[in-house]
Simulated assay, not measured.
Amino acid sequence: MSAVLSSTASRPPRGGFDARRFLVRYGLFFLLVALVVAFSWMRPSFASAANINDILRTASISAIMFLGLTWIIAAGEIDVSFMSVAALGTMIVAGLIQTGAGWPLASAVAVFFGLVFGCLNGLLVAVMRLPALVITIATGGLAGSIAAAIGKGTSIPFNSVGFVGIVLNANVDIVPVLAILVIALYGLALVLQDRTTFGHYIYAMEQNREAVVEAGVPASRLLFLLYGLSGVLSAVAGVFLAADLSSGQPYIGASYFIDGLTAVLLGGMALKMGKPNVIGTLVGVLLLASLLSGAALLGWTDSQRQIVRAALLITGVALVVWTRRKTRAQL
């Protein structure tokens, strides 16, 4: 088992300072800073307190949604149902609020169904060993269809945002309380990822799942847990989205599909050289939120923004694949 775990660690550079390695590991951080500086220079309103608050709030909801996806991809699998589960969460909340249910009940039901879809993915992919891409496309389609059916193909507006709206709109100076909670969540995730056997097993599964199983690690159970976590976090993000939009939106998930994969895969280059990780995802989310906000202030069209997002996704995929191949060639 030690051999499997050691293979997940990044090898130290041979010789002196490796400029290329340094640029790959920290390039995403430099890109984020450069983007913020450029937009602030071109549009000073970008750096206003109100806009920073909006960016952080938007990024916080996305960060919750993409956290579970990060570890699933780190384990060598995929989940493309996360955004549909979030959309379903918004519709469940809106439908129940419209019928007179309170926010605690509506939120709990939404999270429960997120858990159901996460466990369904886990059962089919982790336990029955069916192909993850096909399965999560199917379960995502099911979640999206249920979301559309709840509102009969349209959104469901409501007026009361309850305690979720209070949390969403609360601030400490210009920083949303939700952003502080997300930082705490990602801090806990970082400890689990880098300081426990749980995190080591996740990366070991991507390197050689059969070796992990032979070493006595319950790989199927771990993967089942990761899919369940992804479903729950997607639904929680859906609850916050419903409060943010004051409505349930059955088709909102489509806008998060490219963003989720881009944040995780592009973020996979940060620190761990081709391995998706929570810090990389968080930086990727902030980069995308800043990009969309700055692009809107500059008057970019939706198609222009989509082109940039797609280019970033392609870049992230290419860099992760290239880095993994190079790393394995050195083993």
Rank of each mutant, 00 (worst) to 15 (best):
L261R: 01
L261G: 03
L261A: 14
T262V: 05
T262H: 06
V264N: 01
L265F: 11
L265V: 05
L266F: 01
G267E: 06
G267A: 11
G268F: 09
G268T: 05
G268W: 06
L271D: 03
K272D: 10
M273L: 15
M273K: 11
G274H: 09
G274V: 07
P276S: 10
P276H: 10
N277R: 08
N277P: 04
N277L: 09
N277K: 09
V278L: 14
V278D: 01
V278A: 15
V278Q: 05
I279K: 02
G280I: 05
T281P: 03
L282K: 03
V283T: 12
L287A: 06
L288V: 02
L288P: 00
L288C: 01
A289V: 02
S290R: 05
S290Q: 04
L291S: 04
L291T: 01
L292Q: 13
L292G: 03
S293K: 15
S293R: 14
G294R: 08
A295S: 14
A296P: 00
L297W: 05
L298S: 14
L298M: 15
G299M: 11
G299R: 08
G299F: 11
W300M: 15
W300H: 11
W300G: 00
W300K: 04
T301D: 08
D302N: 13
D302H: 11
S303F: 13
S303E: 14
R305I: 00
Q306W: 01
I307V: 15
V308L: 14
V308E: 02
